[in-house]
Computed example of a mutant assay.
Amino acid sequence: MENTLVPPTKARISVPVIALALYAVASGYLMSLIPLMLPEYNLDTSLASWLASVFYAGLLIGAAGVEPLVKKVGHRNAFVYCLITFIFTIMILPVVPNAAVWVAARLIAGMAVAGVFVIVESWLLHGDESARAQRLGLYMGALYGGSALGQLGIGVIGINGGVPFITIVTLLILAVVVLIFGESDQPQSEHSESLSLKQISKLNHAAIIGCIVSGLTLGAIYGLMPIELHNRGIEHSDIGGLMAVVILGGMAVQPVVPWLSKYLGRTLLMALFCLLGVAAIAMTTIVDGMQALGMALFLLGVATFALYPVAINLGCDKLDASYIVSATQVMLFSYSIGSVAGPVLADWFMSGSQGLMGYLFAALLATCIYMLIASIKAKHQAVAGE
């Protein structure tokens, strides 16, 4: 099928990237805000892990159902609809401080955010295949950079009253304005096609595992890291900064991923990043002090946030452009499965001596071993095929 998008330039993809960055700032602030503000609304702190999991359950549902919306209204309009839905789920939280309402709101929020991710990823993955890694790096940089900036809202704006919600909603409205009035090319989404179950089963297994583990780790980090840091006796004003350090690590690695992909196989690359994460977690138990903790969390961010872009690029490698939206759905669906399970599984570790770090250590070490085996197997198959 002929390419349906003019080869992207910085100007042509600026609209979805700017809108995504504004969303990321708002979402980053909100993700750390929710578990810390539960006591203010007389809600039990144990609700935090369930709010995180139900959000990712919504992500799971949304990942499976967003393609028809994109196909019907196009990438730009679908992005706008998803952001408006997300705004309504946020506005209801301070108005109705009830556990059931918050759970329902976060479920719907997850469905809307799934739309955001599939829309932007498929938008940027269309076009020149050789530039996909760079465009994904820009996407991840905007996402993680915005999220890191959003974490600082905990210390700068605080967690009390209505001002945090006003700030978050304002940023999201600005993102909608950018999408409505900004000029940008978008894929001809009516030409997209769905992958069959047989085609899905033939997608790279290491890519799918990488997306699942990315969800297992990032879902737990977003949902429970603020509580883990609080349990370590760290002040609220410092928690936002440390969360920002984690995400800054994720942002810093994005320009490096395309460069490393030229010299290392993507499966081996995921194994090395997992090994780096294991080393970072070990560092948190060996070395004391806030600076050492900050450095370890930065490296943990580098390791965990690198997995998804490497995995999705591997999964979409040599794939026809008409299947890109469907493939990104599959990858996000895989990520969402991990994200739903992550906070719940990690919650079992929270009462232990190692807490969240023990969970992340186990998940990354197991993945490192799997990816090393998969990399060796793929290399042997390539040699045998020559």
Rank of each mutant, 00 (worst) to 15 (best):
A11R: 15
Q381E: 10
K377F: 04
G150R: 09
S49M: 08
P94N: 00
V113I: 08
P255C: 07
S322Q: 14
K262S: 14
S237P: 02
L218G: 00
L43R: 05
S194N: 14
V80E: 09
L172D: 06
H380M: 13
A311W: 05
Q354P: 01
K10L: 13
M283W: 15
T167P: 02
Q199H: 12
L43T: 10
S214E: 08
F333R: 10
I239W: 07
E183P: 02
N204E: 15
G385A: 02
A114K: 03
I239D: 01
A100N: 09
V340D: 03
A220I: 02
I154A: 01
P164I: 10
N231M: 06
G127N: 06
H126T: 13
I369R: 11
H236T: 08
I90F: 00
L224H: 05
M290W: 10
D238P: 00
V96N: 03
S192M: 07
F361T: 10
A280E: 06
H191N: 15
T367K: 00
C274W: 09
G115R: 03
D317N: 10
G145F: 06
I312T: 15
Y56Q: 09
G141C: 14
R132Q: 12
K10A: 09
L69Y: 05
I369Q: 07
L293C: 07
P8M: 14
G215A: 12
A327G: 08
G28K: 04
Q381K: 13
V96L: 09
Y56L: 15
C274D: 11
F117Q: 01
L203F: 12
F165E: 03
F305T: 06
V213K: 03
F55R: 07
L149I: 15
L269A: 06
T267E: 11
L372P: 00
P343R: 11
L360N: 02
L83M: 09
N160A: 14
Y81P: 02
L47S: 08
L372Y: 00
R76S: 01
G219P: 13
L107K: 07
A306S: 14
G161P: 06
I18R: 05
N98Y: 05
G110P: 09
I212Y: 02
E235N: 09
I234L: 14
E40R: 10
A24T: 05
E121I: 12
K71L: 07
A378W: 04
W348E: 11
A220H: 00
G158E: 08
I166H: 04
A280G: 08
Q381W: 05
T9I: 02
L20G: 05
V340C: 04
V176G: 08
I239C: 03
T85W: 06
G385S: 05
G141K: 11
I108M: 07
E40A: 13
L268A: 12
W102T: 06
M350F: 03
L314C: 11
M371T: 07
I87R: 09
A279I: 13
G210R: 13
E2L: 09
A148C: 15
D185Q: 11
M290R: 13
D288M: 02
D185G: 09
A104D: 02
I200M: 13
M140R: 01
V169L: 08
D238T: 09
R232K: 14
W102V: 05
L345K: 13
D238S: 13
L172H: 12
V302A: 01
A148W: 12
A292M: 13
I168H: 01
A175K: 11
